[in-house]
């Protein structure tokens, strides 16, 4: 049952990165769109993610619940030592979630829209950035559970070059996912071109920040290169991601939208796999050199068993319903 629960956890994290990430990306894209095209972008975006956006964010809840029920030690270590970035990410989640709904459901469209838009764009950026920073911090080995001073305990664990580089890398990936998703959501030639341009821009940004992640890892003495290139899985994942990049650019020029989406999702999955596989099942790397492992800190057997059952039952109910939602609203309005 433990394996099932861990599989669900990994799935939930991955899906949150892909679906929630694309949603953050939509805000990020809007941030980098010229003023004259913004309202169009907004409209396409709303049609595209309106029906599914609430559901996309549920994956975060699922992941966090699995953590605190099944792996409480991991959850509490994160909560204590990454308190500040988690709180900032939460502020971002609150701000963008509400601004997104408010701007659509405000019965009067006036100057308030300006405020909602600003909040939505900037908080999308901040949320993605801090999501990345948190992810980076978990593997950066800067978290010091024996720290005695405030800075070492609550700041340096996440405020380091590697975590920040991962943060910006995440922002670029989110923007990239969103741009790819939006290409398929518009019929208009100019809009399509615009989103393709955005996707290209975000892709270049992702490659640049990806390189920065490696440089920062070198600087912070994180064996990222070993993780990626010394394990077969890591290496094949990164090779597949690179190959798909070539294919992706080709398809981007051709404008094949459906395959593009799958490929972009695949690429991001491969990147996550490459980074995380080498130290799996370790979830948090600590400064002391120890690591907190999923397998070693799992809760009592009965808890894991009932959690697994709840997840299996949940997925039987959720997945078909969710699949139908995506299917039903994928076709555009006439």
């Amino acid at each position: 049952m433990e394996q099932i629960v861990i599989t669900f956890l990994c799935m939930a994290i991955l899906l949150y990165f892909l679906l929630g990430g694309a949603d953050f990306g939509a805000g990020i894209i809007e941030l980098f769109t010229s003023t004259k095209n913004r309202s169009k972008t907004r409209k396409t975006m709303y049609q595209a993610i309106g029906p599914v956006w609430e559901a996309n964010h549920m994956w975060l809840i699922i992941a966090i619940v699995i953590l605190f029920v099944g792996f409480p030690h991991i959850y509490t270590t994160m909560s204590v030592y990454l308190h500040i970035p988690l709180a900032i990410m939460l502020i971002g989640i609150i701000a963008r979630g509400t601004a997104f709904v408010f701007r659509h459901y405000d019965a009067v469209k006036d100057d308030m829209q300006w405020l909602y838009n600003r909040i939505f764009r900037y908080s999308s950026f901040v949320t993605a950035l801090f999501l990345g920073i948190i992810a980076g911090s978990l593997i950066s080995g800067h978290i010091d559970t024996q720290a005695t001073d405030f800075y070492t305990a609550y700041i340096s664990g996440w405020l380091n070059w590697f975590s920040i580089a991962v943060g910006f890398f995440t922002v670029a990936l989110c923007g990239f996912l969103a741009a790819i998703y939006l290409i398929g959501e518009t019929d208009e030639y100019h809009d399509k071109r615009r989103f393709i341009k955005k996707a290209e821009f975000m892709n270049i940004a992702a490659v640049v920040f990806g390189a920065m992640v490696f440089i920062a890892a070198q600087r912070d003495k994180i064996p990222l290169i070993d993780w990626v290139f010394k394990s077969n899985v890591g290496l094949s994942a990164i090779v597949l991601a690179s190959l798909s990049l070539v294919l992706l650019w080709y398809l981007l020029i051709k404008g094949k939208t459906k395959v593009l989406r799958i490929l972009a999702g695949f690429q991001v999955t491969m990147i996550l796999l490459a980074i995380s596989y080498a130290h799996f099942p370790n979830f948090i790397r600590l400064k002391s050199g120890d690591a907190i492992s999923l397998l070693e800190t799992a809760g009592p057997e009965k808890t894991i068993y009932s959690l697994g059952l709840a997840l299996l039952l949940g997925s039987v109910l959720i997945l078909p319903f969710l699949g139908y939602l995506f299917y039903k609203f994928q076709k555009k309005e006439e």
């Binding site: 808890t303 959690l307 709840a310």
Partner: peptide
């Protein structure tokens, strides 16, 4: 945690 995991669903 049990009610929370069901609540997630």
């Amino acid at each position: 945690g049990m009610p929370f995991s069901l609540e997630g669903t």
